[in-house]
Amino acid sequence: MVGHTLELRGSPFLQEIIREVPGGERIVHCLQCGTCGGSCPNGADMEYTPRTILAMITANQRDKVLKANTMWFCVSCYSCVSRCPQKIPITDIMYGLKRISIREKAYQETDAPALAKTFTDLLDKYGRSFELGLASRYYLFNRPLAMLKMGPMGLSMFTRGRMSLTPTRIRNVDQLQAIIRKARELGGVS
């Protein structure tokens, strides 16, 4: 490894991302070409494009990055990843930023963390997703007014047999929960 990449690795925030995200160490190979931002379907709405975020991570601008809306506009379409000439796992880095931002409650003006929490809580409980439970809990607690607008659509889904009123529970939910508990206990991928 040449000298300047060692220097780049000196950013504590970069080190944190490397621990948080499998393949995160590839950030040091970023050429700042901007293909990621140009490929992103939501790039125009982001405070900082993915390219800028990668540079900010290297420059240790932790607070600014964690408060940015960038990762919350990432829809996990992997366009940037499949086009990145340096094979940087940008979508997974966005997931990593979401997780750190949630742990530290640094995020601003987004309901995405509440949606993720409600979804995974239901998964942990039943082993399957439960759309009606997700929609009612998420909207009730986070976006009560938007719930009204969802009414007609929910009704047309229901009348076509596309919305179940009761959750499906897997048989070995205890086994699944033991696996999840162990993951929490191990506390991360590295």
Binding site: Y95, A116, F119, T120, L123, I170, N172, A183, G187, V189
Partner: peptide, 25 residues
């Protein structure tokens, strides 16, 4: 038999290791 939800994009937002384990089951 007895498959579980893959966690969609939401589990990776919460917990990477749990997301992988839930899928790997």
């Amino acid at each position: 038999d007895d498959w579980n939800c893959c966690g969609a994009t939401e589990y990776f937002t919460q917990d990477e290791l749990a997301a992988c384990a839930v899928i790997a089951r």
